[in-house]
Design a protein around this nucleic acid. Structure first.
Length: 820
RNA sequence: GCCGGAGUGGCGGAAUGGCAGACGCGACGGACUCAAAAUCCGUUACCUUUCGAGGUGUGAGGGUUCAAGUCCCUCCUCCGGUACCA
């Protein structure tokens, strides 16, 4: 018998499949289309790790099965080549980004082929190619034309270590998404996209998506919609007379308990309202808190909030009370109106502040109208309003509506919805990105350059610096141009777009990657989109995934698409933990590559192990030992099937023949459901069980030739998506395939329900829930007969000692439970 | 704090409310071998045992049920996210 040699099989079959175009996107009009997409990777120098395999191998298995199920499958791959990660790598190695991209994408592609990830390489795309980024620029201008792209020099997050401005999403928690360093605030003119305009739709349209709950929760959280009210307090100033101070609150029901107001140190009115007497101290405080990062502020305030009185007072429009105005950095400049009414009785932060500075605390919300006392602790729960003038006696919920309406009719406030999400800062003072296609003209202002692509010039020096200037600014030939509008000399915008702009529409490009007169062919997009299955890591929950949803909605509004959500079903593979107990990642240098494993165990064993090692979504610690197990499994399949290839007609054991059919049908059913349901691990286990069954019964019992042929054929077929090499080889060796044929285009087997029917079933007999015996009964036995048989057991008789049982529960096909 | 998820053998993990630990790894014992590797066969939750079996076990404590890893309540721990958002 021929020995199993995976190297030989891989060398033989890979080119065969490539030549027959096995992975080419299907276009049979009779079949339904299935678009499966893997997050397109940024090509890093470290290459693919086994962590990437947990993404690409399961989707490959799914796609192979979908093809066998009779679908046209689109499973493309491309490169997220522009942007910070690729550029950081180029800077680190001193290689030009173009060269880095070329070398790394080649390596990725080679590795993907190592474990036979079946992509349609005719549709390969690269976001750093002018053919592609021309359209990224096109979308930027579309956003610009719709008033959804604008320039502003608000405060931005800046990572001093990466020397780059970051979007809010990229700097969540005050930490840079790339280097995990602390970010600082900076002010530079930057380009923003108005994602906030889509906040409601981004929030509401999440509900119907087949996405993991945690990702949806993260997006909801990030969008952070809150319903509240804006109320205008008035301030009598020394110089400017009465000015208005709008505050935002979600608890207007507590407004009679407002005993002071607090402005963020950055609040624009602060200098104006501060009285002479307090000016010096306030200025000093503002300066001190401005020097701190948000993170430092938070850490400092955990030890005790700080703030300072301004000398000014504000009048509460609800009760005419004058309350002191303070400034404190626990109030954030970037949210609401940067000013709050402080209600120490019913807000923990205000309570802490009032305690520290000895400010009054007035209880205005009481459960069932009974005051609880709020000196020691704030009560934040809803309740009944007390000490609240005409509103006393109402409950919190209704009063919020009533009081907002009251404020509106008296013109000192209104109900208002606020969001946490900020507009998307999309410009970067970086070389390696799509240039923002804008020309600045002294006369005409910012003018779109519609002569696309605006090609990224080739430059020698592309390293960023702290100046806030793009490396492109030094490229005079490129910067100096003429205004498309008036023809006068003008200068190009030197910022490029963040990498996340490129990935906000790439899934559309795959439908027609070579389209030259539009970003995509609408007919092709109609055929394939939205993406049926999108698979990648969870780390892009509030970056890529929210940006892509935003762009899709904008395109829908522009009439370019007939759907508003790009990804119908999303799955996140679990992280792989490396030997150092940290997430396996290029930046941590703890990466294990598939290369060495394929050499040692073969692609089939690696593929099986990757899907067998645990549930798809679970975080798992990498261990190579388990890989020996799937390697043994593949080898056992090989040996057993070749060993039993030649069938001699011997006497058939009818009972075994039936049992064999039963086990086969059970396995086919289980594997079918498990692959469809992303439960690959138990699917593989089922195939192992079946092989064990065959192994144990080999030589002990014989089936009919027809059944055995069916077993060989169907077992190989259901194993084929996970182990493509060994199955195709055996398929041919056992004589199922023609010369130019492959198992991978065979029809997925269907199980016969009738085969799953059994003549007799084993039933567990319990006494008071404890197992005391088993009986074998006909599958169609009646409850009564099962009960009689169970009661007849010696153990049961001993237990009952002749008495009549109190109760007998019979679950046909499962168990009998006797309660004495 | 808030949101999401998870706690089951030595390990990764299985279990439509119905036989807990499938499958795999590791370990132990045996066969084959001069020997080893590979392969094959067996054992492998814990305690007791007269070897028939008996008892205990799914983070903790309550509850519902004939029956709970699974459902409900109260906690604890871990992972991920987020956090002075008014």
């Amino acid at each position: 018998m021929k020995a199993y040699n995976f190297k030989e099989l891989e060398k033989k079959w890979s080119p065969v499949w490539e030549n027959m175009g096995l992975y080419k996107t299907g276009d049979d009009p009779e079949k339904t289309n299935f678009y499966c997409l893997d997050y397109f990777p940024y090509p890093s120098g470290a290459g693919l790790s086994v962590g990437h395999c947990r993404n690409y191998i399961p989707t490959d298995v799914i796609c192979r099965k979908k093809r066998m199920d009779g679908h046209n499958v689109l499973h493309p791959m491309g490169w997220d080549a522009f942007g910070q990660p690729a550029e950081e790598y180029a800077i680190k190695t001193g290689m030009h980004p173009v060269e880095v991209t070329r070398v790394n994408t080649e390596n990725y592609k080679r590795q993907m082929k190592l474990f036979e990830a079946g992509y349609d390489w005719e549709r390969e795309i690269n976001s750093s190619h002018p053919d592609y980024y021309k359209w990224t620029q096109y979308f930027f201008l579309m956003l610009y034309d719709k008033g959804l792209a604008y320039q502003s020099d608000n405060f931005q997050m800046y990572c001093p270590s990466c020397r780059i401005v970051l979007s809010n999403e990229e700097s969540a928690g005050g930490i840079c998404w790339r280097c995990s360093g602390e970010v600082v605030k900076k002010r530079l003119p930057q380009w923003y996209l108005k994602i906030t305009e889509y906040a409601d739709r981004l929030l509401e349209e999440l509900d119907d998506l087949d996405w993991p709950e945690n990702i949806k929760a993260m997006q909801r959280n990030w969008i952070g919609r809150s319903h509240g009210a804006e109320v205008v307090f008035s301030i009598e100033t020394e110089k400017d007379g009465v000015i208005k101070l709008p505050v935002y609150t979600t608890r207007i029901d507590t407004i009679f308990g407002a005993t002071f107001c607090v402005l963020a140190p950055e609040h624009p009115e602060l200098p104006g309202i501060t009285t002479e007497k307090y000016k010096k101290d306030v200025e000093q405080y503002v300066k001190a808190s401005g020097a701190k990062t948000d993170l430092e502020r938070l850490v400092a305030s955990e030890k005790g909030k700080t703030g300072i009185f301004t000398g000014a007072f504000a009048t509460n429009p609800f009760n005419g009370e004058k309350v002191p105005i303070w400034t404190a950095d626990y109030v954030l400049a970037g949210y609401g109106t940067a000013a709050i009414m402080a209600v120490p009785a019913h807000d923990e932060r205000d309570h802490a502040f009032a305690k520290k500075y000895d400010l009054p605390i007035i209880e205005v919300i009481a459960p069932d109208g009974i005051p609880q006392g709020v000196e020691d602790e704030a009560t934040v729960a809803d309740g009944e309003l007390i000490n609240s003038g005409q509103f006393s006696g109402l409950n919190s919920e209704e009063s919020r509506e009533v009081m907002a309406a009251y404020a509106e009719s008296n013109r000192f406030g209104k109900a208002e919805t606020r969001y946490r999400i900020r507009d998307w800062l999309v410009s970067r003072q970086r070389y390696w990105g799509a240039p923002i296609p804008i020309i600045h003209c002294e006369k005409c202002g910012a003018v779109p350059d519609r002569n696309l692509p605006v090609v990224l010039p080739d430059v020698e020096s592309y390293e960023p610096d702290d100046s806030g200037r793009s490396p492109l600014a030094a490229c005079q030939d490129w910067v100096n141009t003429t205004c498309p509008k008036c023809g006068m000399p003008a200068k190009r915008e030197t910022s490029t777009m963040a990498g996340f702009a490129c990935s906000s529409w790439y899934f559309l490009r795959f439908a027609s990657p070579n389209c030259t007169d539009a970003p995509f062919d609408m007919e092709e997009v109609k055929k394939w989109l939205p993406v049926d299955l999108y698979v990648g890591g969870a780390e892009h929950a509030v970056m890529h995934l929210i940006y892509a949803r935003f762009w899709t909605k904008v395109m829908f509004d522009a009439g370019m698409l007939d759907f508003t959500e790009p990804f119908t079903c999303l799955k996140n593979q679990g992280m792989l933990i490396s030997f150092d107990h940290q997430k396996m990642s290029n930046s941590k240098g703890n990466v294990i590559t598939p290369d060495e494993l394929v050499v040692k165990y073969g692609a089939d064993a690696l593929r099986l192990y990757i899907i067998f090692m645990g549930p798809f979504e679970a975080e798992i610690e990498w261990s190579e030992e388990g890989l020996a197990g799937t390697y043994r499994f593949v080898k056992r399949v090989w040996n057993l099937f070749l060993d039993t290839a030649e069938l001699e007609e011997i006497e058939t054991d009818k009972a075994f023949d039936k049992e064999l059919r039963y086990e086969l049908a059970r396995t086919v059913k289980k594997v079918t459901k498990d692959i469809d349901g992303f439960q690959f691990n138990t699917g593989v286990a089922a195939m192992m069980e079946f092989l064990n069954f065959l192994s144990v019964n080999r030589g002990k019992a014989s089936s009919s030739a027809v059944t055995w042929r069916k077993v060989q054929k169907e077992f190989l077929t259901i194993l084929a998506p996970a182990a493509p090499f060994v199955t195709d080889e055996l398929w041919h060796m056992l004589g199922f395939g023609e010369e130019n044929d492959t198992i991978h285009t065979q029809k997925w087997p269907e199980w016969v329900e009738k085969d799953l029917e059994k003549d007799t079933v084993e039933i567990v007999v319990q006494i008071k829930g404890k197992i005391r015996g088993r009986i074998s009964v006909p599958a169609d036995a009646s409850r009564e007969s099962i009960e009689q048989m169970a009661l007849g057991l010696e153990k049961v008789q001993d237990y009952l000692k002749g008495a009549v049982p109190k109760r007998v529960i019979v679950v046909p096909g499962r168990l009998v439970n006797i309660i004495g």
